[in-house]
Design a protein around this nucleic acid. Sequence first.
DNA 1: TTACTTATTAGCTATATAGCTATATAATGA
DNA 2: TCATTATATAGCTATATAGCTAATAAGTAA
Lengths: 93, 93
Amino acid sequence: MNESVFKAMSDATRRKIIELLKDGPKSAGEIAEHFSHAQPTISRHLTVLKHAKLITDRREGTFIIYQLNTTVLQEWLIWLFDHFGGGEQDEEK
Amino acid sequence: MNESVFKAMSDATRRKIIELLKDGPKSAGEIAEHFSHAQPTISRHLTVLKHAKLITDRREGTFIIYQLNTTVLQEWLIWLFDHFGGGEQDEEK
DNA sequence: TTACTTATTAGCTATATAGCTATATAATGA
DNA sequence: TCATTATATAGCTATATAGCTAATAAGTAA
């Protein structure tokens, strides 16, 4: 599994961006409105998510629209379950 | 969800420690043997995992035995699925 | 071209993290 | 008590990260 996905998902602001994009694509400005951070700060978070391939972007006029890459997100979840899920082991209390 | 769990799981060395402990409790030394890092480096990773409550420790003589806290790990996985799983949305290609 | 809007990039600061070596602590056993 | 073993902590360096403001880029429209 790509380390960059773990690093991207380890930040609360970026996780909230992912949750916002679950409701559909949004422009960088729309995303930034949900936070109290400066807009360039959110832009850099978007870059981190993009490098992890968790989101894609496309330009629409002056807007840049970000969209969730559900495939990468779900492959990450599956990887996590494969490696860390269902690991009950004998309780030898 | 506790931010410290995300931070703890975002490091490849710590994830490998978690995987090792899925096979059962191990001493700090046994764990360190699986890595090429210095022993204090692994000790610090164990501290990070302990603070996230992903592992517990108990002393047995001169050894300190670490054990996976499967509850915290599984609650994390469930939280992830609740927030990020099953998020298919209309493809408007 | 100029002005306006949207967003990114540059450059900075402060803090966190991962690695190391050296030292300290804690238990055991002579 | 002293030595040994197992492990943690202290103190350091180098790098990464998150935040900011200021500047740049790219599209639209007059």
